[in-house]
């Protein structure tokens, strides 16, 4: 048996998990399923690509770092992209979601996010066309690491980046005052106001974190696969599955859920057949929910 699926699954699983953090936070704090979350990934990737191009135009071509396919401009651009995506989410909230949220019916907000998703995607197709593009067209050599498994330097760096981002996020939610306020708000919004929490600040923090992580995941997909306007939409269902599997509101849960979905999809492709990919992931999701309806790390409220 070829164990390569483990690396493939870990990679796609960590990308799914990174995106699922935003979904799980929006769901537990703003109380709606944000179907535009995948499009934040795509916008983040295209935004980063544009900044890379701008840097290239200013300073000329730069050599990639070591064995990686990209150089420092991409890192800088990704940070700029995260800020831009966060701004996009805040503007969208101000224009659309905040107004509808005040009316108190979450299904209306969900439908609005569907609309926003389509609009954002069409806008990308309009500006950048629907044909795929790449951060780098170079081909990387995969390095054998034993047991018949190969991994590219890019993949190693992306895995490490994911681990750092997720750990930082977890510590932020557990240790920082803003993280505590976000958890408090998700458990009881009106009590949060009573204890002096500025709920508008919590809402802003949620959008900024969710969108920035979506951008990071989008850039990683761009580096490892390709950039397309539909890239976020393709990952939307797996991301929701990961958030639900891990338990709504749980950051480690979303990541673990992502890894389980990614690994089981990769295993299904190798062991059963590529056509069973999505089916296996959702079979696992349903099996877990039958045993633990609140997901792996989810806890029943009150």
């Amino acid at each position: 048996m070829n164990l390569q699926f483990i690396v493939d699954g870990l990679i796609s699983g960590s990308l799914i998990g990174l995106g699922a953090i935003g979904i799980t936070l929006t769901y537990s704090i703003l109380r709606f399923s944000n179907f535009a979350h995948g499009d934040f990934m795509a916008w983040g990737a295209y935004g980063t690509l544009s900044v890379v191009a701008a840097i290239g135009a200013l300073v000329g071509t730069t050599a990639p770092m070591g064995a990686l396919s990209f150089g420092w401009p991409l890192i800088l651009a990704a940070i700029a992209g995260m800020i831009m995506t966060a701004c996009l989410a805040l503007v969208l909230d101000w224009l659309l979601f905040a107004r509808l949220r005040d009316r108190g019916q979450s299904i209306i907000v969900v439908m609005a996010s569907f609309g926003a998703s389509m609009a954002l995607r069409s806008l990308l197709e309009f500006i950048f066309t629907s044909s795929p593009t790449y951060f780098s067209r170079g081909i990387q050599m995969a390095i054998p690491i034993g047991f018949g498994i190969r991994i590219t330097p890019d993949q190693m760096v992306m895995l490490a980046t994911t681990i750092i981002l997720v750990t930082a996020m977890h510590l932020f939610m557990q240790r920082s005052q803003t993280g505590r306020e976000m958890r408090a708000y998700s458990q009881n919004p009106s009590l949060a106001r009573v204890v002096g929490i500025d709920t508008a600040r919590v809402v802003r923090a949620t959008w900024i974190i969710g969108a920035a992580l979506a951008c990071a995941a989008g850039v990683m997909v761009g580096i490892l696969v390709q950039i397309r306007p539909l890239m976020g939409l393709d990952l939307l269902l797996p991301m929701f599955a990961a958030a639900i599997l891990g338990g709504i509101g749980s950051v480690p849960g979303a990541v673990l859920g992502g890894l389980i979905i990614g690994l089981s999809e990769a295993a299904a492709v190798q062991l059963i057949g590529a056509e069973w990919r999505a089916a296996i992931a959702f079979a696992i999701l349903m099996a877990v929910l039958l045993v633990r309806p609140t997901g792996l790390f989810g806890r029943a409220e009150r």
């Binding site: 505590r180 958890r183 009590l191 009573v194 929490i197 409220e301």
Partner: peptide, 24 residues
Amino acid sequence: FVPQTDNIFPLMTVEENLRVAGGV
């Protein structure tokens, strides 16, 4: 103000419940 019901954050620890109110 102390509400009548649901006046604590059940999933947070006792100490976190106190700490979260100290934001100001």
